[in-house]
């Protein structure tokens, strides 16, 4: 495999990793505050659908993005209502939201566009266009001629949609918000010992809702990028388990932002390799493409099993907070 092919695979990895990374950070905020979020998948899916639908009708990717975030926030509100207000089972709520998204998107898409549960192909203005960084080459023949550094710059670093750069910027931002601000300290505390936060006179319910809302906004961006950046329109079940991979990445990263970047890039790389190559011939054995598909999940189970470093979730995660009376 030559240098340019490697770059192309890495370039594709970065694109594949973007929705994973944003969704993973969404899960990070939610789970650090003690709210398990299995519904990442569903929130991304409704966001993908509504952003594609609005972008197709209005021709504006920005309106699409807003609509996507709005849809995702509605789902977040239901999750918050069920798991915070009514102290229901957070896992069951997440599962229900995933199915709600899977069903609603197809039913509504068929009713609006009558194209078998998909939205129309998005035209130029309805998508996130690649951003060409200054001095970067654009045509593939020019890139093939250029030196290695120029190839790296033009192929890998330049030419992505805005959400890719946003996702990368979100990592330090999340780290800063969680570990360097008062809000972050309280958010983490509410996931570890909500009774202590309550004793200090800070609203547990308020903080948890804040975390769920942040997760909703991020899932909205992730879903919108899926339908208006990575692809040009919504197709049935287009998240294809990405929400669960993001969840896996979150555990893989042990609920830390920088580790999340690493985990998502790794899982994005696996997806990119599975897309580009089918079966991989290692000389001795041929690795079937299905192994690539299953690898993120297998790695997560191994990590969860604690054989390679133990993943310890926030202590109060998944438990509704009941004020003592």
């Amino acid at each position: 495999m030559d240098f340019l092919t490697t770059l192309q695979v890495l370039d594709s990895s970065l694109r594949q990793a973007t929705p994973l990374l944003i969704a993973c950070l969404a899960g990070l905020f939610s789970e650090r505050a003690g709210i398990f979020d299995i519904g990442l998948e569903g929130k991304m899916l409704v966001a993908a659908f509504l952003s594609a639908a609005v972008a197709a009708v209005t021709g504006s990717v920005w309106l699409g993005l807003l609509a996507g975030i709005g849809a995702s926030l509605v789902f977040s509100a239901i999750h918050g209502l069920a798991s915070i207000t009514f102290r229901g089972n957070q896992l069951i709520s997440g599962v229900a939201l995933n199915f709600l998204a899977a069903g609603l998107t197809v039913v509504i898409a068929q009713s609006w566009f009558a194209q078998g549960g998909r939205t129309p192909q998005l035209m130029a203005g309805g998508r996130f266009e690649p951003i060409i960084l200054p001095g970067a080459l654009t045509s593939s023949s020019d890139i093939a001629q250029a030196g290695p550094l120029m190839q790296l710059y033009s192929e890998l670093i330049s030419g992505h949609g805005l959400p890719v750069y946003v996702a990368l910027a979100l990592v330090p931002l999340t780290w800063w918000a969680l570990f360097r601000t008062r809000f972050g300290l309280r958010l983490r505390a509410v996931g570890e010992a909500p009774e202590a936060v309550d004793t200090a006179g800070i609203s547990v319910v308020g903080l948890r809702f804040a975390a769920v809302v942040i997760a909703g906004v991020l899932c909205g961006i992730a879903g919108a990028y899926l339908a208006t950046g990575l692809q040009a329109g919504f197709t049935k079940d287009m998240t294809a388990g990405r929400g669960y991979i993001a969840l896996a990445a979150l555990i893989f990263a042990k609920w830390r932002p920088w580790y999340a970047l690493g985990a998502c890039l790794l899982f994005g790389f696996l997806q990119a390799v599975a897309i580009r190559f089918q079966n991989i011939d290692l000389g001795v054995v041929e690795v079937p493409v299905q192994v690539m598909d299953a690898l993120p999940y297998i790695l997560t189970v191994v990590i969860l099993a604690g054989f390679v470093g133990r993943a310890i979730p926030p202590r109060a995660g998944g438990e509704p907070y009941v004020k003592e009376r």
Partner: peptide, 16 residues
């Protein structure tokens, strides 16, 4: 799938 989701939501998560 929508009905299934609503049943799970109401009987499972929004039980209270």
């Amino acid at each position: 799938v929508v009905i299934q989701a609503l049943v799970i939501l109401f009987t499972g998560a929004l039980d209270n």
